[in-house]
Amino acid sequence: MAKSAVQEFTKGLWAEVPPFRLVLGLCPILAVTKTLENGVGMGVATTFVLVCSNMLISLLRDVIPKQVRIACYIVVIATFVTVVELLMQAFAYPLFLKLGIFIPLIVVNCIVLGRAEAFAAKNGVVASFADGLGMGVGFTLSLTALSIFREIFGSGTLTLPFISTVLPVFGPSFEPFAFLVEAPGAFLCLGLMLCIMNMLGKK
């Protein structure tokens, strides 16, 4: 049953959106979604790694021996992650300072390895590209949604990505729910998001 590239792309946006449907890759989701800027930055970095590693692994799927495939995938993924890390240091240093350890940790993000193993290893380059892009965009949108919610209510501001402008949303008299930008608040928000997603998805 061969699906079109468009279908492979769109499934990552809703039907199999990684953090909420597959519930994979939660570590960065919980940790970096304190501000919108961090969330989007993390999403873009992960998308880049996903697309590149999916395509390369799909190209090399006949070369990689079955017994050592995981090791090979990790080498490919780790390479792209380090590329992202270096590029981010060179071109977006303030963002790199904020995301810090979570950039190298993309290596162990289950989504990236998961897509490599479950999809790229069995499908062609175009389909793998569409799958990686769809998953990446879905991941980015999830991070965006979660970080908008947490930042608006947790700090009362909104940091616009790429230009680092902080917009006050509620004005100075707003007392922020500081709880939401702490780790337990992240779990709470994620739970609520999952709940809403399941409610909407129920037939």
Partner: peptide, 14 residues
């Protein structure tokens, strides 16, 4: 050989 080649290529690229 496969793993060695993979590692060497990625090392060089990085």
């Amino acid at each position: 050989v496969v793993i060695a080649v993979f590692s060497a290529v990625s090392g060089g690229l990085l």
